[in-house]
Amino acid sequence: MSSSDIFISETIGTAVLLLMGGGVVAAVTFKRSKAFNAGWVAIAFGWGFAVLSGAYIAAKSGAHLNPAVTLGLAVKGGIEWSQVPVYFGGELLGGMIGASLMWIAYYGQFRAHLTDPEVLAAHRQNGHEGMVYERTAPKAGPVLGIFSTGPEIRNVAQNLATEIIATIVLVLAILNLGLSDDGKGVSWGGALIVALVVVGIGLSLGGPTGYAINPARDLGPRIVHALLPLPNKGGSDWGYAWIPVVGPLIGGALAGGIYQVAFA
C-alpha cells in the first residue's frame, strides 16, 4: 500500500472517529440537545461506536486511528518504521477535521451554550463549567471538554500513569485479538472487539482523566479549539496537553514490548 493510501485512509477514518466521539460528548453536554444529561455511559458507548465506525471506514490502511496503536504495531514488527510518520500525520489531520465537523454540526448549540449567562457565571465562579465531561482545569474553557480530555484531580504522576495503563490495555487487546491476517492493522472482526474494549476502558478507567488513550484524539481537537472563533471559549489548557500525548505513546510502546516478551 502506498503512503498516500495510508495517509488518506487514516485521515478519513480518524475524522469520523472524532466527529462521532466529540459529537456524543457535545450531545450530552449541551442543554439545547436532545441527548442532554444522558450521562457517562452514553459517552462511553458513543466513543465505542465511533471507534467501530472509523475502523470500518479506514480498513484499507489497517484502521490504526491512533498513534499509540501505530507505535505499538511498529514495536511489535507489524509495520515498517518508515510508515509511522505517515500514519501519525493522517491521524493528527483526521482528528482536526473531525473536531471541526463536530463544531459545524453543533454550531447553534455552541453559540447558545457560550452566551448563556448562567453557564458563564458558573465557569467564572468555579474555574470550570461543571457539566458532563468538563474538568477542574483552571485554564480550561467551558467547552474544552467537548474537544479534549482533562483530569478530575490534577496530579501529573497519576494522570500520566492512568493514560499509560489504559493505553496498554487497549493496544494489548488489539495486538492479541484484533489484528488482520497480515498483522498490519485491525481486522474486520477485530474492530468490534476493539470498540467493546474502548467502551470498557471508558467505564472502568475513564473517570480520572477522560481516557484520551490516543494522542491524535486529544491534540488535534485541542488545536481546533484554540483556533475556532468561539465566543467566551476560554483557554485550551496547554499545560495539561502533553499528558494525553505522551502517556498514550508510552503505553503503546510498552504494550508492543510486552507483546514481544509475553505473547510472541
Rank of each mutant, 00 (worst) to 15 (best):
M1V: 13
S4E: 07
D5E: 09
I6K: 09
F7S: 04
I8P: 03
E10P: 02
T11S: 05
T11V: 02
L17M: 10
L17H: 05
G21E: 13
G22T: 03
G23I: 01
G23H: 02
V25T: 11
V28N: 13
T29Q: 04
R32G: 01
R32N: 14
S33R: 04
K34W: 06
K34C: 00
F36Q: 09
N37L: 10
W40E: 03
V41S: 06
A42C: 06
A42R: 05
A44N: 15
A44M: 14
G48I: 04
G54Y: 14
G54R: 13
A55L: 12
Y56K: 04
I57D: 04
I57C: 03
A58K: 11
A58R: 10
A58H: 14
A59V: 09
K60I: 08
S61E: 10
S61G: 05
A68Y: 08
L71Y: 04
A74N: 03
V75N: 08
G77A: 07
G78K: 08
G78T: 09
P85L: 13
V86N: 04
V86P: 05
F88C: 07
G90E: 11
L92S: 05
L92R: 07
L93C: 09
L93M: 12
G94Q: 01
G94D: 00
G95Q: 07
M96N: 00
M96D: 01
I97N: 05
I97F: 09
A99G: 07
L101K: 00
F110E: 00
A112M: 11
A112V: 02
T115G: 00
D116G: 01
D116M: 03
P117N: 10
L120G: 05
A121C: 02
R124Q: 15
H128Q: 11
H128W: 15
H128N: 12
G130I: 06
E134W: 05
R135E: 07
P138F: 04
P138G: 10
K139A: 09
K139L: 06
K139E: 13
A140Y: 10
P142Y: 06
P142D: 03
G145S: 04
S148G: 01
P151Q: 10
I153G: 01
R154Y: 12
N155S: 15
V156K: 10
V156G: 02
Q158M: 13
A161T: 14
T162Y: 10
I164C: 06
A166V: 01
V169F: 15
G178Q: 02
L179R: 09
L179A: 05
S180R: 15
D182H: 07
D182F: 07
G183H: 11
G183S: 11
G183K: 07
G185C: 09
G185E: 11
V186L: 12
S187A: 15
G190T: 10
A191F: 13
A191D: 03
V198L: 15
V198W: 11
V199D: 11
L205M: 15
P208N: 15
Y211F: 15
A212W: 05
I213T: 08
I213N: 12
A216V: 08
R217V: 02
L219V: 02
V224N: 00
H225G: 02
A226E: 03
L228T: 06
L230V: 08
N232A: 00
G234A: 02
G235Q: 04
S236F: 01
A241M: 08
I243F: 00
V245W: 03
V245K: 02
G247L: 05
L249I: 08
I250G: 06
I250H: 09
I250F: 07
I250D: 06
G251F: 12
L254Y: 14
G256T: 02
I258V: 14
A264C: 00
